[in-house]
Design a protein around this nucleic acid. Sequence first.
DNA 1: GTATAAACTTTGTCATGCCTAAGTTTTGTT
DNA 2: AACAAAACTTAGGCATGACAAAGTTTATAC
Lengths: 244, 244
Amino acid sequence: MLSASIEDYIKAIYALQTDRETASTKRIAERLGVKMASVTGMIKHLAAEGYAKHKPYRGAVLTERGKRVALGMIRRHRLIELFLASTLGLSWDELHADAELLEHAVSDRLIERMFEYLGRPQFDPHGSPIPSRDGSMTPRHSSRLDELALGDTGKVVAVSGRDPEFLRYLTDLNLRIGSKILVRDRAPFNGPITLRVGSRTIAIGHEAAARIRVSVDAPTKGARKPKPEVKRGSRTSRRAHKRR
Amino acid sequence: MLSASIEDYIKAIYALQTDRETASTKRIAERLGVKMASVTGMIKHLAAEGYAKHKPYRGAVLTERGKRVALGMIRRHRLIELFLASTLGLSWDELHADAELLEHAVSDRLIERMFEYLGRPQFDPHGSPIPSRDGSMTPRHSSRLDELALGDTGKVVAVSGRDPEFLRYLTDLNLRIGSKILVRDRAPFNGPITLRVGSRTIAIGHEAAARIRVSVDAPTKGARKPKPEVKRGSRTSRRAHKRR
DNA sequence: GTATAAACTTTGTCATGCCTAAGTTTTGTT
DNA sequence: AACAAAACTTAGGCATGACAAAGTTTATAC
């Protein structure tokens, strides 16, 4: 059985190496709230145990074994979040902190019971995919809201921050998973993006918009102003995550 | 914040001093699966922190402060058990182990959410009372099944063991919280007790019977053989614990 | 290209909580 | 009462995982 500390380090490295290629000592330390010296020590331990590779002065990278552990933790985390949301009705800004504590304590048996109870879900309350037991994740074909063109319509499918402030801000704007949006205006110089959300019109900054993932509707036949220079991901429409 | 270890010691001392007046080093060690030397060390620590009094060679006793912590832990434990039973449908033999792990990790906020979600329950799935936030517990007026007289009828309100084997045994006998029973026969010399449970007739040993608490029905007018030498507790009838 | 800053590692220390081995107190037996 | 066994404590040690301080490597600036 791995200690809670080791699990946290592996999760942190996984998250960091998903962005960049490698997880630096500094960033791991910041993420976990420990000093760099502690991180170096733990990275060496992880390397000795075969969970990571340590390239001195160059950061850490997980091995396949380490990745498997990381995906297992993410699975636990997201199932716990969904379970707490479904049963106790916790709002999305409250979920992360509690799941973070519980993910080290919940038995495998309980995780699988939750999985079945929740109807073998694919996505958590933030729209993030839940890894399957074997570590595979349903890919999401979505675009960053800040990359949408004027006139585009779509549905919010995920958000990438877990900061409660940010999530409450979105709630105040009426933005949640499944919200339908229409891009009304895009100010130049990374200025705010104006959206239609339900019956409200709101303005949102670029930084926030970049954290919101949207599945964009295929354009309808009606005349619309194209904006070809904006590149986007695939636009497959997907059902939103089921809430109760 | 108290460590999981400290919480476990306080719980163990509480349980032991509820039986006897004091919790001996040996018994604490057995309960927690550690050596006596470790217990002595921790008792001294608890005494230094004001959670317990240590009388060397005489065992430990919790202070008021320690008791408050213990009741808080019991509250958490029992609410978690009830929550897992209510949502995931865990059977009573599965509950204890998971709750034991979770009770150290669940936030106070989550505990109170569970409490409300469950409808401010008074009893856990084993029929044990759930301490209120201030530490008071609804007393249960019940008798040990092995002390019932021939012909007595009643309802199972609680069991006092948490051993999964024992609980599965009771399940096999059709005995659960709320089961109505009738004492058909009592063999002499601490022999088995024969019961009517629903439509089945079963025999149960004294040791098991002593762990089952029953609320005995007031005798009906019809003729019945009295057995005055058996003393019992009060016989107030109480609603059984609500299951979903 | 050299100096300085930033990132990183090494070394030694500390708290927690466990252990073993050895010594002490209490209890039980005769 | 005296001895042996059981219960208990003390002393010393170890693993984990954190830290600070000091030293090393890499990046940045000029």
